[in-house]
Every structure is written in structure tokens, then in C-alpha cells.
């Protein structure tokens, strides 16, 4: 006898097949947003590890929409950071120097990690500014 001959009662409402992956991802985003609100802990979803077909990926992009902020970084190749229509949900794509995607993430955070300036760098900036000021005072010209 085949298993298909035994009637199966579905006890939960489930979305159509093609959309199940997307719904799971949206649930995960929602969970991470809740975590961010509760504990200030940033969340990251690795999109390359989620088996999305190109069509599903497009559908997800459309669903999440376009927010107000976008940023482009030039660091070992290009990186793009785009806010989605959902505040706190960022679509981050890292390319290598040849333009091939090396990482694609959804970051759930007030602002994505890669955009932040860190303390060490602030100190370095101060040192360099001081050098500029000294240079102007001593040499008298701005270069």
C-alpha cells in the first residue's frame, strides 16, 4: 500500500508551496525584530544559506520594498546597504572586486555594523586632525 492512500488531515493553515520559503524567512525577520526590541541584540540572516529560487528572491525584494536610506561602500570591491520599507531591516550585499556577490545578508539592526565608525578609528581621526592643524600652524599652507 502506498502512503498516499492514507488520508492526511492538515491541522495547520499553510501557505502555497512556492511561498513557504518566503513565509519562513519573514517569520525569522519578525522574530529578530522582536529580539532587537527586547534586548538591543542585532540579528543577521544569511540569504545565501536560504535556498531561494531567483523568482523567490525577487518576490522577497518586492515584499520588503525600498526604504529611505541607501549607501554604497568601496571597500575590497563594492558593497551596497539598502534600507527596506521596514525600518530596522537592511539588505546588505557584498561584492568582490570583480563584481561577484560574496555575501548577501539581511541585517536587523538600528544601523548595519559595516556602516558604524568604531572607537579606534575616532582616535586615529583625532590624531590626523591634530597633524593637519600643526601642519597649518607651522607651514602656513593648506594642502
Amino acid at each position: 500500500m502506498g502512503l498516499d492512500t492514507i488520508p492526511i488531515r492538515s491541522e495547520v493553515m499553510s501557505p502555497p508551496f512556492e511561498q513557504q520559503g518566503i513565509v519562513a524567512l519573514l517569520q525569522e525577520i519578525s522574530q529578530l525584530l522582536r529580539q532587537l526590541a527586547l534586548s538591543d541584540e542585532n540579528g543577521v540572516i544569511d540569504l545565501r544559506r536560504s535556498p531561494l529560487s531567483p523568482a523567490q528572491r525577487e518576490a522577497l525584494l518586492t515584499l520588503l520594498g525600498q526604504g529611505e536610506v541607501s549607501a554604497e561602500l568601496t571597500v575590497m570591491g563594492r558593497s551596497r546597504v539598502e534600507e527596506t520599507a521596514l525600518a530596522g531591516v537592511w539588505w546588505v550585499t557584498h561584492y568582490n572586486e570583480e563584481g561577484v556577490v560574496v555575501a548577501e545578508l539581511l541585517e536587523i539592526a538600528p544601523i548595519p555594523q559595516i556602516l558604524l565608525s568604531v572607537e579606534d578609528e575616532l582616535g586615529e581621526s583625532q590624531d590626523r586632525l591634530q597633524q593637519m592643524i600643526d601642519g597649518i600652524i607651522n607651514g602656513g599652507s593648506v594642502k
Binding site: 500500500m1 502512503l3 492514507i6 488520508p7 492526511i8 488531515r9
Partner: peptide, 10 residues
């Protein structure tokens, strides 16, 4: 006895 029981025993 449902689908899961049948598949588990099989």
C-alpha cells in the same frame, strides 16, 4: 493509525 504511524512502522 495514520500516515505517520504507517511510515514509522514501514
Amino acid at each position: 493509525i495514520d500516515a505517520s504511524v504507517a511510515s514509522f512502522f514501514s
